[in-house]
Design a protein around this nucleic acid. Structure first.
Lengths: 134, 134, 134, 134
DNA sequence: TTTT
DNA sequence: TTTT
């Protein structure tokens, strides 16, 4: 079992890229608040990645500031820097996402949001394990 | 491990009662939607109970229709009916609750909600195991 | 989100039945311990159901007393008794199961278990929503 | 909500250190297996930290190779290297741990383990937010 | 019995 | 009705 469940807001619009074999990869940071003591709040910015159909859906439906619920797994990825140093980066591979707010449209500049019901998207295939192109 | 995480809307206002020793108990049903196929949606109405300080906070801050996240544990409680039949009832004992929407005020009749940030309450003590007075 | 994660032991061998359309359904109770105070332990017996391929795997790989981890969702099912009373029953619909112990063989009568690694099975299709034949 | 649930084996014995104010901090990596395809398995080594009473319990009860369940939250910590580079490190702050196997004693050199029941420890206070001394 |  |  490797399960992560987060509720937070997108720190920026998702960035969708494509691997050499054409698989979509969306990535963004999720700002997750934590209440340390009363009046005190701390934020973790947690890197999220989504693959394929879920990645496309992220690109088409999520915008900066929107609140979502992410379910996924925690992955530690190793890589080497240009000058040969080994680094590790952690990210949450999203397997399903629930919208807790309607997308902010540029036109509406905010919109109601309050009456929007949860809807949910999931990855229909297991995420591929190709190299991420960034 | 006995962990339950639910996102849904209150099907009714919380009902707060008190045990003989004065402990507060809040109870309500949470309407949790599930997307069976496209356009098709099914709802589970899941009984939630909260104890003591968390119960008071539920009574003071939650209203019918409001969307929340509940974290707790699944409990199977046995009881006997008036005519001596054994029955079992399942309920989720809430240990913490996150508000995903601001409380609907009677006055505002809806309100903005959209810009409300998640806030969270937790049970500061372990829930007691007294008999529930209903 | 409707997520349940349980760690416990099978209270009995799984029972595998088949719907009229031939879908396998496994059911069993999971004994989940909780530590109320030191030396004090309470047990919830939580009904689990699994469907189709996961049901078959349960029937073939799980036995009474074995410890497993169940991930699924909490479902409230309504039915009528023979004399027309409405009842509700709660159960956890398993979506994946991890073995935390090797199966107890009748021959070995226990076995080592200690060196067994977690292995995991999941439902490859969404569970059907037919009537359960019991 | 920032929830992480992991099942895995300790990749090494926990290391217990103390902050300048005397708070215990335990840290270790958890090896979490994932089944990519049949016969194929991949392992994430996920850094775990525990604080105070939970840290002491880790030091006294956990050893390399032991399988446990960790519940906690995902934290991204920023720090600067000696030469002034900003780095980020992810770790799971454990809030409770369940033993899925008895501790391997040096004497027993392995032991049965198979008949050990789950027991559970939790952090009785919220983890402090001091600087970690490493 | 919630909501879109 | 599990298990230690």
């Amino acid at each position: 079992m490797n399960k992560v469940i987060l509720v937070g807001r997108l720190a920026q619009d998702p960035e969708v890229r494509y691997t050499q074999t054409g698989k979509a990869v969306a990535s963004f940071n999720l700002a997750v608040n934590r209440y340390v003591s009363q009046g005190q709040q701390q934020t973790d910015f947690i890197p999220i990645v989504a693959w394929e159909r879920l990645a496309e859906t992220c690109g088409n439906n999520l915008t900066k500031g929107q609140r979502i619920l992410v379910e996924g797994r925690l992955q530690i990825r190793s890589y080497e820097t240009a000058d040969g140093q080994k680094r590790r980066v952690a990210e949450v591979v999203a397997l399903s996402i629930e919208f807790l707010e309607r997308k902010q449209t540029a036109a509406a500049g905010g919109g109601s949001g309050s009456s929007f019901d949860v809807s949910s998207i999931g990855s229909d295939v297991f995420p591929p394990e190709e190299e991420i192109p960034f």
